[in-house]
Design a protein around this nucleic acid. Structure first.
Ligand code: ZN
Ligand code: ZN
Ligand code: ZN
Ligand code: ZN
Lengths: 162, 162
DNA sequence: CACCTTTTTGTTATAGTATTACATAACAGT
DNA sequence: ACTGTTATGTAATACTATAACAAAAAGGTG
């Protein structure tokens, strides 16, 4: 199979399960890499995982405030940067926002399907895309090391509501 | 041939020719579509085409100032938005910057190779990537209408200097 | 434990990117 | 010339992100 859908989360599902599993994976992953998933970082990760919609840094700040913290921007950005480097979340450049990664230990680069209607984002990993990029890069002598692939459109659920 | 390099501009070439051709194509393209390429818009397009490096909106403002204008941010953003909609330039979301499109009439979506060393950007159009995306989108019921594909790495010229 | 080093978090200020709202000017058709 | 439309000018503001330094917490060592 040449493509794999990591998070096909356009539509109904048991989201409490998503969040719980993400947190458990995060604990294991950080322990394995010697990274410290502090209380603050875990709380930010929980906030990011509240939905499958991307969350901005200032959304995180706002949410932290409702939880009793009095954070300044660096607090959110530092936690988010940690989570990005730990590969627990991804940053969506086209939206200036972050989204939880459902498969943090696979060392993948994110490829994202962004629904303009419901704002949900699904992460995919399509080996054909990766191979096509590697092949093109190689043919031009370009040495690729990071990909930002963000596809915008309408998810099936939203399209059928039209 | 499944992939096509639109602008393989990592390295030496006659750049005056790039700029001149881009401006001529812009005139023709706008005339054909009934779009008005005003003096200001043409000047901004020229600024964007000064190099193959992406140019930020505030870079454009700065450059307009050296040319005798006294512009405010909306002046630059409006001209850049026009040029994006006219498909004469592309916006690189991962850099908050703009770059000239060397093939404005082909109705393509940009795919970009961004060199972190020399900052140059090449635009490519790889049909395998597009097909892979369409196939994945179709298989999930996702209706894609815009792609943002930005590959970061080292161009051949920069890598051989290491 | 007391001490030192490193990492994390708090705090203030500021830099960088982009848009809103409204006024004026240029343009196109009558 | 008159009128509606599009483009540009201008001022203010909103949104996104980082720098610089202080304080606190965590971890290791004797
Ligand atoms: Zn879920
Ligand atoms: Zn949707
Ligand atoms: Zn050139
Ligand atoms: Zn280079």
């Amino acid at each position: 199979m040449s493509d794999k859908i990591i998070s096909p989360f356009f539509g109904q599902h048991n989201h409490a399960h998503c969040t719980q599993e993400a947190l458990e994976q995060a604990e294991v992953s950080c322990a394995g890499k010697g990274l410290k998933l502090t209380a603050l970082r875990k709380e930010v990760l929980t906030i990011v995982w509240q939905t499958h919609k991307p969350v901005g840094a200032y959304d995180v700040l706002e949410e932290l405030r409702t939880r009793g913290h009095k954070p300044s921007p660096p607090t959110a950005y530092r936690a988010l940067d940690f989570l990005v480097h730990a590969k627990l979340i991804h940053r969506l450049a086209s939206l200036n926002a972050y989204i939880g990664c459902p498969a943090p230990d696979e060392g993948h680069q994110g490829q994202f399907l962004i629904c303009t209607q419901c704002k949900s984002v699904a992460e995919i990993e399509d080996l054909r895309i990766i191979k096509a990029i590697d092949a093109t890069a190689a043919s031009t002598g370009f040495n690729a090391n990071r990909q930002s692939i963000e596809i915008t459109g309408l998810c099936g659920a939203c399209e059928s509501q039209t």
